[in-house]
Amino acid sequence: MWRGEEHDGPWLMSLDRAARDALASISNAQVLELSAQWGRIEELAWSGPPSDDEMLPVIQKVAALAQRARDAGEDLYCWCCL
């Protein structure tokens, strides 16, 4: 679901529950793998590619947020803009 009037954003997107639950169930081993993968995403490279060490706490926080939302029976939202 997109909210926002401008093509460049900002937008508020509701993640479906399958995405929320997938994020909530990330294992410790997957966190390390994902930090390397997410570090190669061009859109996340504001001032050069982020290191694995920079991505690790981001992924851990996203997973924890998804776990809290899942456990509370709530949805997970993402706010973004270009």
Rank of each mutant, 00 (worst) to 15 (best):
R3K: 11
D52G: 08
R17Y: 04
S25N: 14
A64G: 07
A66C: 03
R40P: 05
G4I: 03
S25Q: 14
A72H: 03
G73A: 06
R20K: 13
W79A: 14
G48H: 04
R68V: 02
A19L: 15
M13T: 06
W79E: 03
Q37E: 10
A18T: 02
S51P: 05
R17L: 09
G39D: 04
M55I: 01
A18Y: 01
W38E: 04
V31R: 12
S14D: 12
A64C: 00
G9L: 09
A36W: 09
E5V: 10
Q37N: 03
S14C: 11
Q67Y: 01
A29R: 09
D16W: 06
K61T: 07
W2A: 11
P10D: 10
S14I: 04
G39N: 07
D71E: 13
L32M: 11
L34S: 08
R3Y: 12
A72I: 02
D75R: 06
M13S: 11
D8I: 06
A18G: 03
R70L: 06
W46D: 12
D52I: 10
M55Y: 00
S27L: 10
G9E: 12
E74F: 00
P50H: 09
N28F: 02
C81M: 15
R17E: 14
A64D: 13
D52E: 15
L12P: 00
V58R: 12
L76M: 13
E54F: 04
L76I: 00
N28I: 01
S51M: 06
M1C: 01
R3C: 08
V62F: 03
E43G: 15
L56K: 10
S35M: 11
L12D: 07
I26S: 05
V62I: 13
A24H: 10
K61P: 02
S25L: 08
N28P: 00
A18I: 06
D21Y: 07
V31C: 04
A22F: 00
V62T: 11
L82Q: 15
P50C: 13
P49Q: 13
Y77V: 02
M1E: 12
I26Y: 07
P57G: 07
R40Q: 15
E42I: 05
I59V: 11
P49N: 09
G39R: 05
L82K: 12
D21N: 13
L56G: 01
D21A: 05
W11H: 15
Q37D: 05
C80T: 14
W2S: 10
A45W: 03
G9A: 09
H7C: 09
W38Q: 09
S47A: 14
C80G: 05
W11I: 08
A45P: 02
